[in-house]
């Protein structure tokens, strides 16, 4: 009971902090936090797929990009579209793409799954570059109109040029996404997923269609990647092939997940935060960004292969838990 109260306090505290950040830190950090939140959602969506089905995607950028391009195209061509429905269109396009790929990907797993996604993400990337008339090619789609956020008859918030308003909007959408994904993993359905990952045959015998449930997780994961992409497009008022479909966009959530820790739901969020802070520090001190990031990746994977979460556990064991230490010695 006590724990629950403390938890409640923590959550309320977090919401208050998120709410007052723009007042305290100013516009620059607001942008940083939106970027963080976007990539945190992308990373969590990848991790939901990975953690609950064991499927690693090397091409998650295609859903991120589908969300971004969907939203950007909708805002550019449909006059009078509301903000939320533009995000909805982004999510829809990511989900549709996932549905199209579904029959294909439920047939494969492991390496083939990863590489298939790398290939299809590359396909999307090349299409985005080549179909200039639709996607704007190398330049992407920029400067599309951004509607205000309106609750009809109640209130209307201007989004363009007011970073603060957009910050609140983005944080609510992205925070809600994380909460929904968390909720999703806690449902009985989510628990079945864990079963599939650990022992697919058993679940099959229990009467669940393994491929169907896999497909559902796949589409859900893609949809949330789409949310992230969509918000990112509105945030930058630009969607570009390199920025949302490039291969590094696919690798980024994998790196974040690895740094934060594969096993836990919140690991990727920590990983995103750590990576962003790291990047933020590096660019202030050196031009050799590649070198520092490269070395960091190598060091992390060599010395903290379980990510931050794993690393902390190890540290705890080593320094704080004398009993386990003793046990080790005896054995």
């Amino acid at each position: 009971m006590k724990n629950k109260i403390i938890n409640w306090f923590l959550w309320v505290g977090l919401i208050v902090i998120v709410a007052i950040i723009p007042k305290v830190f100013g516009a620059y950090y607001v942008s940083l936090i939106v970027t963080f939140a976007v990539f945190a959602v992308l990373s969590v969506s990848l991790n939901v797929l990975l953690g609950f089905t064991g499927l690693l995607s090397f091409g998650h950028a295609m859903f991120f990009g589908a969300g971004g391009y969907g939203t950007a195209l909708a805002l550019k061509h449909i006059a009078g579209l509301s903000l939320l429905s533009s995000v909805g269109i982004g999510v829809l396009s990511a989900s549709v793409l996932a549905l199209v790929l579904c029959p294909l990907v439920v047939r494969v797993s492991g390496t083939a799954f990863a590489m298939l996604h790398l290939a299809f993400a590359q396909l999307m990337y090349v299409l985005a570059l080549k179909l200039r008339g639709i996607t704007g090619g190398e330049d992407g789609i920029g400067n599309f109109p951004i509607p205000p956020f309106t609750i009809p008859g109640v209130v209307s918030f201007n989004m363009k040029g007011v970073p603060e308003n957009f910050y609140y909007f983005a944080m609510i959408v992205l925070g809600l996404s994380v909460w929904l994904m968390w909720f999703f993993t806690k449902t009985p359905f989510g628990q079945i997923q864990v079963g599939i990952r650990d022992n697919a045959k058993r679940i099959d015998y229990l009467g669940f269609k393994v491929s169907h449930t896999k497909a559902v997780v796949y589409v859900v994961s893609a949809a949330f990647a789409g949310v992230a992409g969509s918000v990112y497009a509105i945030f930058h008022n630009l969607v570009s092939a390199d920025g949302s479909l490039g291969v590094l966009v696919s690798f980024q959530p994998i790196i974040n997940t690895m740094i934060g820790g594969v096993g836990s739901f919140f690991g990727p969020i920590w990983g995103t935060a750590i990576f962003q802070i790291l990047e933020e520090i590096i660019v202030r001190f050196t031009d050799r960004v590649e070198l520092v990031i490269g070395v960091t990746l190598i060091l992390v994977i060599m010395f903290a292969p379980q990510g931050l979460a794993g690393w902390i556990t190890t540290l705890k064991q080593r320094f704080f838990s004398a009993s386990s230490h003793k046990l080790e010695k005896i054995s």
Binding site: S31, L32, T35, G243, D287
Partner: peptide, 22 residues
Amino acid sequence: IKADSMSKPDQAKKICERMVLQ
């Protein structure tokens, strides 16, 4: 002041905002 865009739009946006605001 060097502001490294890394030829990437998102990085450019970030660095420009840092230059202006910070």
